[in-house]
């Protein structure tokens, strides 16, 4: 019985202390319900509530208006003219905090997961040819795999892109460098087709210069 009285007292005290915020509607839902329930049974708190309402009304008195322009001008004169230089460590810290904020966390984690998967795939794919290469056996007597021959070519300034493309396709050549400072291009051509290609290139009216690089070195 005593315990029950004590509990009732503490519940009454709790509600009584919450009444000012109950009147203002600034309690959370659970507290609002707690007060509502208690008020039904407690005449003392209902009386108190009326007094709270008077207090709320009394505090709504308006004070004389002040001159915001004058006050701001006074403060403006005290503030530094230049924007504050934010130290690097503060900027980094702010950036870190912003990136770690809940709003950013989810997309960042998703991005991180994608990056991890991407790296894993790249690593796996990268290892495969490397492993294959390691086990390739080549006898010293065997000639090296044919490297494409290189040819320097210069076109007339009037040569159109379409014309250039036609000549390259006809000669089985690919541009691997250029235009150089002298406006020339380096073409790669399979060695077995080199002679035919050089001849064909020299026969083109748009081509000013044809000079096989390897041929020159071999001479």
């Amino acid at each position: 019985m005593t315990a029950r009285v004590v509990n009732l007292d503490s519940a009454h005290r709790e509600v009584r202390d919450l009444l000012p915020w109950f009147v203002m509607g600034t309690l959370d839902e659970a507290e609002q319900r707690l007060v509502d329930e208690h008020l039904k049974a407690c005449a003392a708190c209902r009386g108190e509530l009326e007094w709270e309402r008077q207090l709320r009304e009394a505090n709504r008195v308006a004070l004389p208006e002040r001159d915001v322009d004058r006050a701001f001008a006074a403060l403006r004169a005290r503030l530094p003219a230049q924007p504050r230089e934010v130290p690097l460590f503060e900027r980094l810290r702010d950036l870190g905090e912003r990136l770690l904020s809940p709003a950013w966390m989810r997309p960042m984690l998703a991005l991180q997961a994608v990056a991890i998967v991407g790296l894993a795939v790249a690593l796996w794919a990268g290892r495969m040819p490397a492993a294959a290469q390691e086990h390739t056996y080549r006898a010293l007597s065997r000639p090296a795999a044919a490297e494409p021959a290189r040819v320097v070519v210069a076109f007339t300034p009037q040569t159109s892109l379409g014309e250039m493309r036609r000549i390259l396709l006809a000669s089985d050549a690919r541009i691997v460098d250029g235009p150089t400072a002298a406006d020339a291009y380096i073409l790669a051509i399979a060695p077995e087709r080199l002679d035919a290609a050089v001849q064909r290139l020299r026969g083109e009216s748009s081509v000013l210069l044809v000079q096989p690089l390897e041929a020159k070195a071999a001479q």
């Binding site: 000012p20 915020w21 203002m24 709320r56 709504r60």
Partner: peptide, 12 residues
């Protein structure tokens, strides 16, 4: 406390 509660409408 009075001003914050009744005029500024702040919770406790």
């Amino acid at each position: 406390v009075i001003e914050l509660t009744y005029f500024q409408e702040a919770g406790y």
